[in-house]
Amino acid sequence: MEAQVIKERIYQFLIQLKQADGLQYDTELFQSKYITSLFALQIVQFIEREFHLKLGRRDITEQNFHTIDAMAELVQRRLAGGGEGNG
């Protein structure tokens, strides 16, 4: 799946969770307090459902979720059959 498609789907989900003021693919979600842990959980559940993935313990890191770009990278890596990251 193309990175652009993945990013757009995640973006669409995020703005449903929270109104976006200039949300970009590289906006730091944790620093800007954009994500509370409640929303973080819903994002993980969304990604698993939307892309038919089962994320492992080592996938669940801030590094993999701090921007839309990072989430899309994680999804692509896992869709390509890559194992859990080393994060």
Partner: peptide, 11 residues
């Protein structure tokens, strides 16, 4: 598992 995700993404 939900609880693990909560902890990890809360820092």
């Amino acid at each position: 598992r939900i609880m693990y995700i909560t902890y990890k993404l809360a820092g």
